[in-house]
Simulated scan of single mutants.
Amino acid sequence: MSSIADSVADQFPDGAFGIVGDTIGFTVDELTGDSMRARWNVVPAVHQPHGILHGGIHAWIHETVASVAATVWFGDQGYVVGVSNQTDFFRAVSDGEMTTTGTPLHRGRSQQVWVVETRDAGDRLIARGQVRLQNMAARGSNA
């Protein structure tokens, strides 16, 4: 449907992803309606009490990646909202740079499903999620 042709960095000014994004240095490297890739860092501020990355951060990242890319694909038809977010954790991490990629599994008239994976610098799978999104018609639209 649509894609972002301008520089990806220009699309997301500082603060665009809130305090979580700022804390982990969330940076979008690639974005189209067909995929998204972002980098971010595991830092102590997002650890759980045992000194490893909190699983809720993975869920936040997975939903963010899926939602942003799904919104690009949906274009000016409206916006998307999360319906479910299921994330599996494979490796505990306490520091380092992560790369998260999202690709569509299904894109329909009313819903989309995206698969999102997070890998470490050694390309090891850290977490994998599936996010279901509801396509919402633009306000004032009869669609």
Rank of each mutant, 00 (worst) to 15 (best):
S3C: 03
I4P: 06
I4W: 13
A5D: 11
A5N: 09
D6R: 01
S7T: 04
A9C: 03
Q11H: 08
F12M: 00
P13I: 05
P13E: 02
P13A: 06
D14T: 09
G15I: 01
A16M: 08
V20R: 01
D22R: 08
F26C: 03
D29M: 10
E30V: 14
L31D: 02
G33P: 08
S35V: 01
S35C: 11
R37Q: 08
A38N: 07
W40M: 03
V42H: 09
V43L: 00
P44N: 08
P44H: 12
A45T: 04
A45N: 02
H47Y: 07
H50F: 10
I52M: 11
I52W: 15
L53H: 14
H54Q: 15
H54I: 09
H54T: 10
G56H: 10
G56D: 09
H58L: 12
W60N: 12
W60S: 14
W60R: 02
I61Y: 00
I61N: 06
H62K: 00
H62T: 00
H62A: 11
E63N: 06
E63S: 06
A66M: 05
S67A: 13
A69G: 01
A69I: 07
V72I: 14
D76C: 05
D76G: 14
Q77S: 14
G78Y: 06
Y79M: 09
Y79P: 01
G82N: 02
Q86M: 06
Q86K: 12
D88K: 10
D88G: 04
F89W: 10
A92S: 14
G96L: 04
M98K: 06
T99G: 08
T100Q: 00
T101C: 05
T101D: 09
G102Y: 02
T103V: 14
P104T: 07
P104M: 06
H106W: 12
H106I: 09
R107C: 04
R107S: 03
R109E: 10
Q111M: 13
Q111G: 07
V113L: 08
W114Y: 02
V115S: 13
V116R: 09
E117T: 13
D120M: 05
D120Y: 07
D120A: 11
G122F: 01
R124S: 15
A127V: 10
A127L: 13
V131T: 10
V131G: 01
R132M: 14
L133S: 11
L133C: 08
M136C: 14
A137W: 14
A138D: 13
R139P: 15
R139V: 13
N142F: 12
